[in-house]
C-alpha cells in the first residue's frame, strides 16, 4: 500500500445536517457529485481520502453521530482492475463490437 493511496469510506448519518457537520472543513473527495443516497432512514455518502486524512478527520470528530466505515483501498483495487482493461485494439480488424442485450 502506498502512503498516498486513496481509500473509500462510507459515511452514515440520521440527517443531512449531521453529514454536513462532519464534512465541513475537510477536503475529502466526495466522489463524482456531492450527493447522498437514502438507505432506510439513513443518509449515506461514499467519500475518498488517504488514510492519514481519514485519521485526522476521525480524531477531530470523535463525538460525531456519523458512522465511518473504511470499505477498501480504492487505489489498490483500481490498479488491480487495470488487468481487466483491453490491450492493443480488439477492433483493429474493422469488426464492429457486439452488445450485451439479447436480440429477440
Amino acid at each position: 500500500m502506498a502512503d498516498d493511496d486513496v481509500h473509500r469510506l462510507t459515511l452514515r448519518a440520521r440527517s443531512l445536517a449531521e453529514l454536513r457537520a462532519f464534512l465541513d472543513g475537510t477536503a475529502v473527495d466526495l466522489g463524482c457529485r456531492p450527493v447522498v443516497r437514502r438507505e432506510g432512514d439513513e443518509f449515506v455518502v461514499d467519500v475518498y481520502a488517504p488514510m492519514r486524512q481519514i485519521d485526522q478527520v476521525r480524531s477531530a470528530r470523535s463525538a460525531s453521530a456519523v458512522t465511518v466505515t473504511v470499505v477498501e483501498n480504492a487505489s489498490e483495487v483500481g490498479r488491480a482492475r487495470q488487468a481487466e482493461v483491453g490491450s492493443g485494439n480488439r477492433f483493429a480488424q474493422r469488426q464492429a463490437p457486439r452488445g450485451l442485450g439479447i436480440k429477440e
Binding site: R81, V85, G86, N89, R90, F91
Partner: peptide, 14 residues
C-alpha cells in the same frame, strides 16, 4: 474487458 481509448474510437468507426 474494459475498452481502452483506442478501442472506443475504433468501435465507433467500425
Amino acid at each position: 474487458a474494459y475498452l481502452n481509448v483506442d478501442e472506443i474510437e475504433a468501435a465507433l468507426e467500425n
